[in-house]
Design a binder for these strands. Structure first.
Lengths: 305, 305
DNA sequence: CACCAGGCCGAAAATACCTTTCAAAAGGTG
DNA sequence: CACCTTTTGAAAGGTATTTTCGGCCTGGTG
C-alpha cells in the first residue's frame, strides 16, 4: 500500500476496529477526504448496506459506475483491510438494523396478510397460548391427575373433533409406556366404554368449551361409576367441572374469524397432555424408560436406511 | 459457479434465502443428516458465529480439524450456496446476537423434576420449537403449497402415528372450508388412495424423520401419478424430499430421554399445518368464511346451553 | 495557448480465497 | 474377509479481491 494522501493518521494504528453502527457517521466524516468516485461508493454503501453486502467487488463497482480498485480504496478509507471485510461489516450492520425494527406483531391475522406475516403471527399466538396455559395450570390438580393415571388399571379419554385428536395423542403416548388407554371417537362408543369403568380407572375429558354434550356425557357416566375423572377444559366453571375430580385449565388466545377457538385451544390442550405424560413417565420411570426404547426399536425397521 | 447476484440458485427446492436467526435452529434440524466432520463444523459455527465469521475457509477447516471441502459441504447443507455466503450470514447473526437478544437455552427435563418445573420447561421448549420453525419455514415453498391446496380437486394427507394425528387435524380444518381431504391411517389404504390421484390433486406427507417408509411410499405413488406433492418434515434432505414438489421444514427441539423426537416435532408440524390452513382460507375467503360459520352453527346444538 | 505537474482512475495482472474433483480411507454389510 | 458405500482431505481449478501500472483529467504555469 502506498500513500494516504491526507496522511493525517494521528495514531500509529490508522485503522481502528470499526464499530458497525458507526458506518454512516464514518462516511459523513470521511467523505471530504474522498475522491468523487469513492464518494459514490461510500454513498451506495451507507445508503443500502444490505444490498451492498450482497454484491461482489465487481458488482458494487458496476452499480456505482466505478472500478474494483476504487471500491477497495474506499473500503480502506473506511478503515477496513479490504472489501472483503467491509462486506462482512455491511452484512452485520444490515442485520443489526433489521433487528432494531422490533416487529412485535400482536395484531389479528387478516385476510390479506402476506404468508410470512401469517407464519410469524401464528407462531407468536401459539407461543402466547403456551405461556398462558403454563402460567394458569394448577400444579396440584396436575399432580393429582398424574397420580391417578400412573396407577390406573384402564384409561379412557373422551374428546370430539379436534379435541379427539389431542386425546389420541395422549393415548398414543400412554400406550408407549405400557398403560392401557383408549380414546373413542364415537360418542356412543365413549359412553359404552365409560360404563365399564370403576374405581381405579381414570377418565379424561377434553373439551374447550366445557359444554360439549358428547364429551360431558361419558365423563358423567365414568364419574358415577366411581372412576377418577379429569377434565381438560378452557372453562373450568363449565358444566363438565361438575363431574371432574381434577380440572386442568387451558388458556386460549382470542379467537378471530380466520382462527376459530378450536384451533388455538389445541395448542394449550397438547401442552397439558404432554405434562400429564411426562409426569406419568417420571412416576413410572422404571417401566416407562425401557418401554419407550423398546417401541423405538420396534419401529426402526419401518424407516428407510 | 457464477456469482450470487440475483442469481436464483440451483435446484427445484433452492431452500430460499435463509433468515440469519434461523441458523442455530437449522444446525439442530440438519445435524442428524450430517456426517461427523460436518457436525464438527456446524457446531463450531453455531457455537461461535462471530469467531467463525472472522475466519477464511482454510482457517475454519483448521480450527475444526477438517478440510476446506468439508466446510463448504457444511455450508451447502445449511442452505447457502457456499462458504462465502455462510460467512456473511454468520457476521449478520453475530451482530444480531450482539444487539441484545439472548438465545435462551433450555435445560433438559429430568426424571426428578417437580411437576411445576416440567410444565415450565415443556412450555418453553415448545415455544422454542415454534419460533425455530417459524424462522426456518420457507415462505416460497409454503406459498406454493397453499396455492396447490387451494385449487386442489382432492387432497390426501399421509402420516403415521403422531404425524397421522397432525394430518387429521389438517384434514378436519380443510373439510371445514369445503375442501375434499382425507388422511388414511392405514398405509395400504394410503397407497390405494394415492393411486387415484392425478394432476390437480395434492398429496401431503408428514414425517419427522423423512424416512418413514409407510409415508414415503404413498407420496411417491402420488408423485408418479402427477399429483402435486408436499412434504412436511424435519429432514428436508431426507428421502421423502425426492418425491416432494414442495418441502416444508419443521424444526425440532433436541430430544431427550423422556421427550422423544416424535413428541417435539408435533408442535412444529401443527404450526405448519395451521399456516397451510390459514393460507388456504385466505385464498378461498369468499367460500371459506361462510363455510366456517356454517359448521360453527351446525355444531352449536351439540353444546349444553 | 501549449505545456507540465500531480494525483485520480480503471484495466489487467497477481494473489488470496473459495469450490470442485478425485482418489484414498473409513465404515458398514453380507 | 471381501465387497460396496460413504466420508474425507489433498490438490487442481475457478472466482473474487487486491495490487500494479500506465493513461487521463485537472488545474496551474510559462
Amino acid at each position: 500500500m502506498k500513500e494516504t494522501f491526507g496522511a493525517v493518521t494521528s495514531g500509529p494504528q490508522p485503522s481502528a476496529p470499526p464499530a458497525p453502527g458507526a458506518l454512516a457517521a464514518k462516511v459523513r466524516t470521511l467523505a471530504p477526504s474522498m475522491t468523487r468516485s469513492m464518494q459514490r461508493v461510500a454513498e451506495a454503501v451507507a445508503g443500502d448496506p444490505a444490498g451492498s453486502a450482497a454484491l461482489t467487488v465487481t458488482g458494487l463497482a458496476e452499480r456505482t459506475g466505478t472500478s474494483e480498485a476504487t471500491v477497495v480504496r474506499t473500503a480502506r478509507i473506511l478503515g477496513y483491510p479490504g472489501y472483503r471485510d467491509l462486506r462482512l461489516a455491511l452484512a452485520a450492520l444490515a442485520a443489526e438494523q433489521a433487528a432494531g425494527r422490533a416487529p412485535a406483531v400482536t395484531a389479528d391475522i387478516a385476510v390479506d396478510d402476506p404468508l410470512a406475516e401469517v407464519v410469524a403471527k401464528l407462531a407468536q399466538e401459539e407461543a402466547q397460548c403456551l405461556a398462558d396455559t403454563a402460567a394458569g395450570l394448577d400444579t396440584t390438580q396436575l399432580e393429582a391427575a398424574v397420580g391417578a393415571l400412573a396407577t390406573a388399571r384402564r384409561i379412557d379419554v373422551y374428546g370430539i373433533g379436534a379435541s379427539n385428536l389431542v386425546g389420541q395423542d395422549l393415548v398414543q403416548k400412554l400406550l408407549r409406556i405400557g398403560l392401557l388407554a383408549h380414546a373413542p371417537a364415537d360418542p356412543h362408543l365413549a359412553v359404552t366404554n365409560a360404563v365399564q369403568l370403576r374405581a381405579g380407572d381414570v377418565a379424561v375429558a377434553i373439551t374447550h368449551s366445557g359444554r360439549t354434550t358428547d364429551v360431558i356425557e361419558p365423563l358423567r357416566v365414568a364419574f358415577e361409576h366411581g372412576a377418577t375423572t379429569v377434565a381438560i377444559t378452557g372453562r373450568p366453571q363449565g358444566e363438565i367441572a361438575q363431574y371432574a375430580d381434577h380440572v386442568l385449565t387451558t388458556s386460549s388466545a382470542r379467537e378471530s374469524e380466520l382462527r376459530p377457538a378450536a384451533m388455538s385451544s389445541r395448542t394449550s390442550q397438547l401442552l397439558v397432555v404432554d405434562c400429564l405424560f411426562i409426569g406419568v413417565a417420571q412416576r413410572t420411570y422404571e417401566t416407562a424408560a425401557p418401554a419407550l426404547s423398546d417401541t423405538y426399536e420396534a419401529l426402526a425397521h419401518r424407516h428407510a436406511p
